[in-house]
């Protein structure tokens, strides 16, 4: 009985030690980076983040969510630095005083993809609004992210430009999922959707969707880095945020961005833009 008690206590102590050990890290060395699913799903951050950590000794907690949620985290002071692609909401975010030092990092573009059969007959069209009107008039299935992400914001803007309110239509479905998963749903159901080129290229080998519309100026997809304003909330790691922002626009990181994915997909997934005018 007694021996068993001692044994149990030892086990409990061990479990506590392991549990605590797992959580302890030097304070001030953690950075929470709230970003979009596209930067994680494409694999870009798997290269940039470890390099940054090695160079600076910071530990980056990458939380991949939609741009909308990332900014919501920033507004609450639950993140230190953002890497997002939803320019209009970003401007609102900056006007609200939540962020400082918003800087351009890179861009790629959005594309409208659809099934090979192309029931709406939009392949090769130049105008995005026009192609959305044709999807609507032919009642072709359209999959929306529906998650306040940067891609979703872009999609809503195109619908507005086309003068269509699709939310209640039967051919319009919201997945509420990330980009990769939404592309998978569109592929399974034979529907159209709008995607960032990086995620599409990364998934292309497994999904039978073709690029239908590309190249329109309105399809540009720009990523910015924003440091969260430390004056608004306590506990923001502003030094870490600044270090990360500086790193991602540094020459070294920018050249990694330029070369990323070229060997694997035959084309770059992102184009470096640091220091450029918008």
């Amino acid at each position: 009985m007694n021996r068993k008690n001692i044994f149990l206590c030892a086990l409990l102590a061990l479990a506590l030690v392991i549990a605590l050990h797992a959580g302890v890290r030097a304070a001030g060395k953690d950075i929470i980076l709230a970003t979009t699913t596209s930067t994680q799903d494409s694999g870009l951050l798997d290269i940039l983040v470890p390099l940054f950590q090695k160079k600076t000794g910071y530990f980056v907690k990458t939380i991949a969510v939609g741009s909308g949620q990332a900014m919501a985290m920033g507004e609450r002071g639950e993140a230190d630095v953002l890497l997002v692609h939803s320019p209009e909401s970003e401007l609102k975010f900056m006007q609200g005083g939540h962020g400082v030092n918003r800087r351009i990092v890179m861009h790629n573009d959005f594309i409208i993809v659809g099934p090979k059969s192309d029931g709406a007959n939009i392949r090769g069209m130049k105008s995005t609004a026009e192609s959305f009107r044709k999807i609507a008039s032919s009642s072709s299935l359209f999959l929306s992210r529906g998650d306040n992400s940067g891609t979703h914001a872009k999609e809503i803007k195109i619908w507005q430009k086309a003068g269509i309110a699709p939310e209640r239509e039967r051919w319009y479905q919201q997945t509420g999922l990330g980009m990769g998963q939404t592309l998978n749903v569109a592929a399974e159901k034979g529907g159209y959707t709008i995607a960032d080129r990086g995620t599409y290229l990364a998934l292309k080998k497994n999904i039978p969707l073709d690029v239908m519309v590309e190249g329109d100026v309105s399809l540009r997809n720009i990523y910015h880095v924003i440091e969260i304003n430390p004056a608004k909330h306590a506990g923001i790691n502003s030094a870490g945020a600044r270090a990360f922002a500086r790193f991602i626009i540094s020459r070294e990181a920018q050249s990694i961005i330029r070369d990323f994915g070229v060997a694997k997909y035959g084309a770059p997934l992102f184009y470096p833009d640091a220091g450029m005018k918008e």
Binding site: T37, Q40, D41, G43, D46, V49, F59, K61, T62, I63, A64, L177, G178, M179, G180, Q181, L183, N184, A202, L203, K205, N206, I207
Partner: peptide, 24 residues
């Protein structure tokens, strides 16, 4: 946990991430 590589990534969260990356 947040599915952070090498820190809080476990089997279930990694499975979801690899699925959305198309690495079935």
């Amino acid at each position: 946990g947040g599915n952070i590589m090498g820190y809080t990534r476990v089997l279930t969260t990694a499975t979801v991430m690899e699925t959305s990356r198309g690495n079935f």
